[in-house]
Design a protein around this nucleic acid. Structure first.
Lengths: 184, 184
DNA sequence: CTGTATGTTCTGTATAGACAGAAACTAATG
DNA sequence: CATTAGTTTCTGTCTATACAGAACATACAG
């Protein structure tokens, strides 16, 4: 391996990122590996990750697999080196977009599905509590709306986000602005 | 206690909600208690929650405390009953707003803080990797922007969200629209 | 073909968090 | 002021997950 020590700053970030991960239901090591790759200027082989983060090689293998499953890390090869090297997507907006979409797919969508079923069942059961039914309907409506809005935001090109931030407190987000420009 | 059985629909929702919670770093029982209160047409005393969900009374107590900490559940009293009764906020948008703000405060803000420190330290250390520094800066910038946008959305009145949804795919979100209306 | 480098999967252990039940506490009632 | 209802906190156990290390698999080099 080429290098296995971290600058204090990198260390601080990686540790915090790992901590952050755990709070959002993401494995600490997975988050740390991602942080390391995100900061690295070059693709890193698994054994180097292992020594740098001081976690078992097997653990790194699993974490990399997970990250590849999220499609934010990929394998690349380096001339003259048989080992797999790994690199993270570098565009933060892209990372956010991908992770969000993935979590939506894995967690929000099933919830919407269950909720829709609940509403359906509540409607067809006349013995059921009307109040409960109404609660479920409201929740479904809200989550659907929120998901929709979120999807719009997620689809914005990176530049649009910056634009939005500039307009902050005043106005807004012409989602789809870029599309119009392209068309017109 | 008044009633301790759940309709199949309520049960389904509560179980799923608990599951959902665990995926987002929220205790299963806490989420279930919240789901129960959310569906309930009347305030519920702790021991009833305990039997309905089949969890220890102590566990319910802790969960209620947690939910009160989140400010989405509160104690109310019923005439002729010494026991505390609990009810959830019913407005889903309000629940979302409060929970989001709380999580932002607890998790995002500290991250922004650490990140800002990292950038600061990276700048002052000439030996540090320039690439790493740039990565950290980008991340900080992005998170700051995203947080800002999110705060705007969060502050929207409930009605505005519905408006946004109607415009979906076309345009967007005049954040602050309601404020203007009120002022003008 | 054999040995070595590399990577993955399996298995047992450790740990953090969830939870039940007991104990302790608080306050209302007769 | 004792008794009871109600609630919280403490303590030990259980469980799910994370993780290390070993065993296993693959493939390349000589």
């Amino acid at each position: 391996m080429t290098q296995s020590s971290l600058t204090p700053v990198a260390q601080k970030f990686i540790l915090h990122w790992g901590e952050m991960g755990t709070r959002w239901g993401i494995n600490r090591t997975v988050a740390q590996v991602h942080a390391l790759l995100f900061l690295s200027p070059r693709p890193v082989p698994a054994d180097e990750i292992s020594t740098t983060l001081a976690v078992a090689r097997s653990n790194v293998s699993t974490s990399l697999r997970e990250l590849q499953g999220w499609r934010i890390v990929r394998v690349v090869h380096v001339l003259g080196d048989r080992r797999d090297h790994f690199e993270s997507i570098k565009d933060v907006w892209e990372i956010f977009r991908i992770v969000s979409e993935e979590r939506k797919r894995r967690e929000i969508d099933p919830t919407l599905h269950v909720l829709a079923e609940c509403v359906q069942e509540a409607k067809s059961d006349p013995k059921g509590d009307a109040y409960t039914r109404e609660r479920l309907e409201t929740m479904l409506e809200f989550l659907t709306a929120m998901t929709g809005l979120f999807e719009e935001v997620i689809r914005m090109p990176t530049g649009a986000l910056k634009g939005v931030v500039k307009l902050r407190g005043k106005v807004i987000t012409l989602l789809g602005t870029e599309k119009k420009k392209a068309a017109g």
